[in-house]
């Protein structure tokens, strides 16, 4: 009986409409997913450029990219977020002020996406570089030998062929970025963890809200696994493993 009432009290707290906090949690989840997707997209874009740049770029490009990946991977993400968020916001505003414009408030979502995207880009550079190196050189040569331009070779041959090797690492990076969104709480951004903390702080039902947050992260990861499994099967077409 006591158990039952505790459970129903928890469920009341999680109800969608006030006084339940469900709407807040879902809004936090929405922000988390939005930032994770955005940062992942930015990361994949930077990672693709970074990987091709590291493999085929000139010495200067390679040195700069080496500096980027080394720095980002050496420094704890929390520190990077603080540096990038405050330093970048400050730099932008100083530049604006010096040019006679007003200070602006950089949106939390945009800042979160940029900051985590830059971090993701460094890791994605390494994942994709390894995947590109796994593409058999002969298949790239065959494309060059028939007069394909470097861009067309990259797009039609190298990228699709490296996908099977890239997907496990890229799936891993997606898991990391969904969880890294929690770090944005330090800059006051209302993602899932921050919303849960506020709800827990107000109601003192810490266990309920942090369990709820954990369950939502778990659900997100289970859905993602399904999606990546499908992408992997699709990308492996033509191999005996992937089926016809």
């Amino acid at each position: 009986m006591a158990d039952g009432s505790a459970l129903s009290a928890s469920l009341d707290l999680l109800a969608y409409s006030p006084p339940g906090w469900g709407a807040n949690l879902l809004r936090g989840l929405g922000n988390t997913v939005l930032i994770a997707l955005g940062a992942y997209g930015v990361g994949m874009f930077l990672g693709t450029l970074g990987a091709f740049g590291k493999l085929y770029g000139g010495p200067l490009t390679r040195d700069l990219l080496g500096l980027y990946t080394t720095l980002v991977r050496a420094i704890p993400e929390l520190v990077l977020i603080l540096i990038l968020y405050f330093a970048v916001t400050d730099l932008v505003n100083q530049a604006l002020l010096s040019m006679g414009y007003e200070r602006i408030q950089i949106s939390g979502v945009a800042a979160g996406i940029m900051v985590l995207g830059v971090v993701q880009g460094a890791y994605a550079t390494e994942v994709l570089r390894g995947a590109i190196q796994s593409v058999p050189a002969g298949q790239i040569e065959a494309a060059r030998a028939m007069g394909m331009s470097p861009l067309l070779v990259a797009w039609r041959i190298t990228l699709p062929l490296m996908l099977p090797a890239a997907i496990p690492g890229m799936a891993n990076l997606w898991m990391i970025v969904t969880k890294d969104t929690a770090l944005l709480a330090v800059v006051g951004f209302n993602e899932l963890v921050q919303e849960s903390r506020q709800a827990a702080g107000t109601t003192k039902a810490f266990f309920t809200f942090f369990m709820a947050a954990g369950v939502l992260f778990l659900a997100m990861s289970l859905v993602s696994n399904q999606v990546f499994a499908r992408i992997e099967a699709w990308a492996s077409k033509g191999t005996k493993r992937g089926g016809i």
Binding site: P136, G138, E141, A142, A145, M146, G147, K237, G238
Partner: peptide
Amino acid sequence: RRQLERLRQSLGMVFQSFNLWTHMT
């Protein structure tokens, strides 16, 4: 590069290890 690509389009190369693109039929 353009000239080279154009000239390459007039040469059909066959390799020892076939080098068919494995992600295509």
